[in-house]
Design a binder for these strands. Structure first.
Lengths: 191, 191
DNA sequence: CCTTTAATTGACCAACGTTCAATAAAACTT
DNA sequence: AAGTTTTATTGAACGTTGGTCAATTAAAGG
């Protein structure tokens, strides 16, 4: 009943994700519809479903890369030739910076309640947390226990979650983030 | 074109809110539709809009009471005849308990990005935070500054936000919450 | 040139939030 | 009691969403 597009460019997962990403970054998961993505690319909405099984899979494909980016960021900080305490603070502030410069991504990575999305998350959050926890253990020379490590994560999460919600950018709250991290930092050493 | 319901019971905001609340508590904002609420009450969906201007207003009306409940909870803790440090810990754990026993409410109170909902929030979150901050200031005998107070809030928020997302109940994480609060508590005194 | 496969389309579905003219019940007025 | 006004309810309608799928044709392989 319906023709097929002339072949100037076939759709690929890459092309779709590229279009989806820019919409996603500015508008967030809920305000981006499959139809808008298709319209932006000049295709019908049905074609998206040939490449992705549903909206959740498409957006998880974007977010999967963000887990890699976060993991890589942690690795880079660890690879710096700096004193352990400097690197430790860099890890803490780095996590906040990541969260606030990819707010809509962070939301899906660590904040969504959507069951459909969660079904795609797999081990992404766990793996990133493992990296984070290892970094803390290493840099503190094992002086902090798992309970404290987890608590530090939750504290950072609280900061990111709040400023995600308020919509402020990282550069707006850099100073706050630094003193927040300082409080966490000193309380880590005390334990 | 359409008749009007026989008069066994006229709809009121109260009745609607009551029906909405039970659905809301179990299913969350996004999974509760105006149509489901109306169906549960045996009315047409249009009738809801006579009593509430839209979905956001209806659910904010529910959440408004939760701000009162939270404020009241804080007042009750402050009114206890206990040492200040005991009350201080009760405030911290009380906030977490509140958040995790009203997860879908907490989400709208402190976690939503939905602009329509935010437009109804007004001073609700600020007012509750003021109460919380005052409690901290009073109970710590002014030894903590505003920056620390705000940080303590963000830390608690992180705990609640995470376990809201994971869907666990307060009684499942009571132990964790207590040690988390202890870490915060000792770091407060250190500052 | 013929056949097969792969990709695209758009009609279609169920559900959503929201609006609104039509309606009738209820409350007033006389 | 009759007439009028107000108030609450209805459901059709609109636009939008995520998702499905038979029909179709472009491209690939023979």
């Amino acid at each position: 009943m319906a023709p097929r597009k002339a072949v100037n460019q076939e759709l690929t997962r890459e092309i779709i994700m590229e279009a989806a990403r820019t919409l996603f970054v500015t508008d967030g998961y809920r305000n981006v519809s499959i139809r808008k993505i298709a319209a932006k690319l000049g295709y019908s909405h049905g074609s998206i479903y040939y490449h992705f099984q549903n909206k959740a899979e498409l957006f998880y494909a974007l977010v999967e890369r963000d887990f890699s980016a976060l993991n890589q960021k942690l690795d880079e900080i660890l690879a710096q030739r700096n004193p352990a305490d400097v690197k430790l603070q860099a890890v803490l502030i780095g996590f906040i910076e990541f969260g606030l410069t990819h707010q809509n991504h962070y939301e899906i990575m660590f904040l969504t309640k959507d069951e459909e999305i969660k079904s795609f998350l797999n081990q992404g959050p766990n793996k990133s947390y493992e990296k984070f926890a290892n970094a803390l253990q290493t840099l503190s020379e094992k002086t902090i226990n798992v309970q404290t490590t987890w608590s530090v994560f939750l504290m950072l999460h609280g900061f990111v979650a709040h400023y995600c919600q308020s919509g402020q950018q990282f550069h707006d709250v850099r100073g706050l983030a630094e003193s927040y991290v300082n409080i966490i930092f000193t309380s880590m050493l005390a334990s």
